[in-house]
């Protein structure tokens, strides 16, 4: 996969999420992503950045425009934190599972909204989640 352009941001407080979502929209618009796919991408990103803030006290996001296998452009976002990590990923990915007394839809919902979802987490070290949304997918 070829990276065409990228940007790095820190998410340390709630207002950073707003700035991040706007920046992400710029990237999606730049590759001509349709409104529905943009909305799905930004909603997923909103869930994942909130998780970073809530459960890991913040982290960084990397936004990239990538060119995929079928020569299709897409937006890739990587969320990295040095928080407590997720002990049971399978459980965390289930609809309704939450340790934060919320809806438990963030992780599974985000996965449904994007084309590609990858999660890696080590207890005590942190969590890295990478999502890709293809322009037409």
């Amino acid at each position: 996969m070829i990276v065409l352009s990228s940007d790095n941001m820190r998410i340390l407080k709630e207002l950073d999420m707003v700035v991040f979502r706007n920046r992400l929209k710029e990237f999606a618009v730049k590759i001509g992503m349709g409104l529905v796919n943009q909305t799905k991408l930004i909603t997923a990103a909103s869930e994942l950045s909130r998780n970073m803030l809530r459960y890991a006290g913040g982290g960084t996001v990397l936004i990239e425009i990538v060119n995929g296998p079928q020569r299709q452009n897409g937006v890739r976002v990587t969320f990295s934190d040095n928080g407590p990590g997720i002990p049971n990923i399978e459980q965390a990915m289930k609809d309704g599972f939450s340790t934060g007394k919320s809806l438990g839809l963030g992780l599974p919902g985000a996965k449904r909204l994007v084309s590609d979802f990858d999660i890696k987490s080590t207890v005590g070290k942190g969590t890295t989640i990478t999502i890709i949304k293809w322009k037409n997918g």
């Binding site: 979502r21 909305t39 930004i42 909603t43 909103s46 869930e47 909130r50 919320s102 809806l103 839809l105 963030g106 919902g109």
Partner: peptide, 9 residues
């Protein structure tokens, strides 16, 4: 333009 699970709740 965005309603996520937090806003939905």
């Amino acid at each position: 333009s965005i309603v996520d699970s937090f806003m939905g709740r």
